[in-house]
Amino acid sequence: MAEAANVRQNLQNVPSIFEISAAETLDNLIYPALSKVFDYFGLRLDFKLWGNIRVREELSPLITWILQYLYLRKRASSFGESFYGLQRTASSTGELLTRRQQFSSATLLTLLPYVERKLRARSAQHEDTYAWESQLINLFHVYNASKAVHTFLYLIKYASSHSPLFRALRLTLRYPSEPPQEDKWTYLFLKLLEVLAFFLQFIQWWYSNDQRRKLGGTLQNPEPLPERELPQELRETLPKSGECPVCLLPLQTPTACAVSGYVYCWKCIVMHLKEKGTCPVTSYPITIEDLVRIYEA
Rank of each mutant, 00 (worst) to 15 (best):
A297Q: 10
K267I: 05
L200Y: 10
G85M: 05
L193Y: 04
C265F: 01
L67K: 00
V115E: 04
I203S: 02
F198R: 04
L72S: 05
T287I: 01
S35W: 13
A256W: 02
V115Y: 02
S146E: 07
R54V: 14
K48L: 13
I20V: 07
S105L: 11
S160I: 04
Q181K: 07
W205M: 07
G216L: 02
F140S: 05
L200W: 07
A76M: 08
L251E: 05
Q201K: 02
Q204L: 04
E296D: 06
R167D: 11
L215C: 03
L273R: 00
V292Y: 03
L109K: 12
Y264F: 15
T186S: 15
F83D: 06
S60C: 03
E3D: 11
S77A: 15
P164G: 07
L29R: 06
E275K: 12
T218V: 15
L97H: 10
F198V: 06
A131R: 15
S105M: 12
R213V: 06
I53H: 14
A90T: 06
A124M: 12
I156T: 15
D290F: 03
F152P: 01
C268R: 09
Q87E: 08
S160D: 15
L45K: 07
L62F: 15
Y175W: 08
D27P: 10
G261V: 07
Y130P: 00
P164F: 12
H272N: 03
L219G: 02
E289M: 08
R99C: 00
L190K: 02
R122D: 01
Q125E: 11
T278A: 02
L136A: 15
S146T: 04
G277F: 05
L225P: 10
Y71D: 06
F103L: 12
S146V: 06
N209K: 09
I30P: 03
E116V: 01
T237V: 13
Y207R: 00
Q181N: 07
F202C: 03
V7I: 12
S60G: 02
V195L: 08
K36E: 14
Q181R: 04
L119Q: 09
V55K: 04
Q211N: 11
N138K: 14
T282V: 02
S134R: 15
L155G: 03
Q232H: 06
H272C: 08
V37K: 03
T25I: 13
F202V: 01
L251K: 09
K74E: 15
E58Y: 14
T98Q: 06
Q101K: 12
E178Q: 14
T110K: 07
I53V: 08
L251G: 04
S105H: 06
R88F: 08
N10S: 11
P224W: 00
S92P: 00
A148V: 00
Y154C: 00
S260P: 11
A258S: 12
R212D: 09
R117M: 00
Y40I: 01
T186L: 12
S21R: 14
L225R: 12
T107N: 13
S60H: 11
A131C: 10
L192D: 00
V142D: 13
V142L: 14
S208K: 10
R213A: 11
S78K: 09
L26S: 00
N144Q: 14
Q102C: 14
R122G: 00
W50G: 04
S35L: 13
K157T: 07
R56F: 11
L67S: 04
E178R: 14
E243D: 10
I20G: 05
R100L: 12
E182G: 05
Y143M: 05
F202T: 01
N52K: 11
S82P: 00
K36F: 12
L43D: 01
C265I: 01
